[in-house]
Simulated scan of single mutants.
Amino acid sequence: MAYDLDFRNRVLEYVTAGHSKKATCALFGISTNTLYVWEKQLSEQGHLERKNVLLSLAKFP
């Protein structure tokens, strides 16, 4: 599932306000892995924007 940028920011602000990661994930309905990926992305890349993925269309004969 793709989450919008505003939602990602709200989740991380909630954690930085002092709430536990487990409680945050339960409240927002996300997995702990998702939260860790967002934290890692923010620290390494400096933003939470999703990658642009180019989808190739399957060619049918």
Score class of each variant (00 low, 15 high):
residue 58 A to T: 08
residue 56 S to M: 15
residue 20 S to Q: 05
residue 43 S to N: 07
residue 55 L to W: 14
residue 5 L to S: 04
residue 61 P to W: 00
residue 6 D to M: 05
residue 13 E to Q: 11
residue 11 V to E: 01
residue 55 L to I: 14
residue 15 V to N: 01
residue 2 A to E: 14
residue 22 K to P: 07
residue 39 E to V: 12
residue 45 Q to S: 12
residue 53 V to K: 09
residue 22 K to I: 11
residue 14 Y to Q: 07
residue 9 N to Q: 14
residue 55 L to F: 15
residue 38 W to E: 01
residue 38 W to D: 02
residue 53 V to H: 10
residue 39 E to H: 04
residue 32 T to A: 09
residue 48 L to S: 02
residue 31 S to W: 01
residue 30 I to H: 00
residue 10 R to P: 04
residue 43 S to Q: 13
residue 38 W to Y: 03
residue 13 E to A: 14
residue 11 V to D: 05
residue 32 T to S: 15
residue 10 R to D: 15
residue 6 D to H: 05
residue 53 V to E: 11
residue 50 R to H: 10
residue 16 T to L: 05
residue 34 T to R: 01
residue 32 T to N: 15
residue 61 P to L: 05
residue 40 K to F: 02
residue 21 K to F: 03
residue 18 G to F: 14
residue 24 T to W: 04
residue 46 G to E: 12
residue 58 A to Q: 03
residue 61 P to Q: 07
residue 26 A to V: 12
residue 35 L to A: 04
residue 35 L to W: 06
residue 31 S to K: 08
residue 44 E to Q: 09
residue 15 V to H: 04
residue 46 G to S: 04
residue 21 K to I: 05
residue 17 A to R: 14
residue 54 L to Y: 10
residue 27 L to G: 00
residue 2 A to R: 11
residue 45 Q to Y: 00
residue 31 S to A: 09
residue 53 V to Y: 08
residue 14 Y to C: 06
residue 6 D to I: 15
residue 54 L to S: 15
residue 2 A to K: 07
residue 43 S to F: 06
residue 30 I to Y: 02
residue 21 K to H: 11
residue 38 W to L: 05
residue 42 L to C: 08
residue 40 K to S: 13
residue 37 V to R: 15
residue 7 F to A: 10
residue 43 S to R: 12
residue 61 P to N: 05
residue 4 D to Y: 03
residue 48 L to M: 07
residue 8 R to G: 00
residue 10 R to L: 10
residue 54 L to R: 12
residue 11 V to S: 03
residue 4 D to P: 02
residue 37 V to P: 00
residue 60 F to D: 15
residue 51 K to V: 10
residue 56 S to Y: 05
residue 29 G to S: 05
residue 15 V to R: 02
residue 56 S to Q: 11
residue 22 K to M: 14
residue 19 H to R: 14
residue 4 D to S: 06
residue 27 L to P: 00
residue 20 S to A: 05
residue 40 K to Q: 14
residue 17 A to G: 14
residue 15 V to G: 02
residue 51 K to R: 13
residue 46 G to A: 08
residue 29 G to T: 07
residue 29 G to N: 03
residue 47 H to K: 11
residue 41 Q to V: 06
residue 45 Q to I: 04
residue 59 K to D: 08
residue 33 N to E: 07
residue 56 S to F: 07
residue 20 S to H: 01
residue 52 N to E: 04
residue 1 M to F: 09
residue 5 L to F: 00
residue 26 A to C: 08
residue 13 E to R: 08
residue 38 W to M: 08
residue 14 Y to T: 06
residue 32 T to F: 05
residue 32 T to C: 13
residue 34 T to C: 07
residue 50 R to I: 12
residue 30 I to E: 02
residue 29 G to P: 01
residue 27 L to R: 07
residue 30 I to K: 01
residue 48 L to I: 06
residue 5 L to C: 00
residue 49 E to Y: 02
residue 2 A to I: 15
residue 52 N to L: 08
residue 57 L to C: 10
residue 39 E to F: 02
residue 4 D to G: 06
residue 30 I to N: 01
residue 53 V to F: 09
residue 12 L to F: 08
residue 14 Y to R: 08
residue 17 A to F: 15
residue 21 K to L: 06
residue 34 T to L: 02
residue 17 A to P: 05
residue 56 S to V: 14
residue 21 K to W: 02
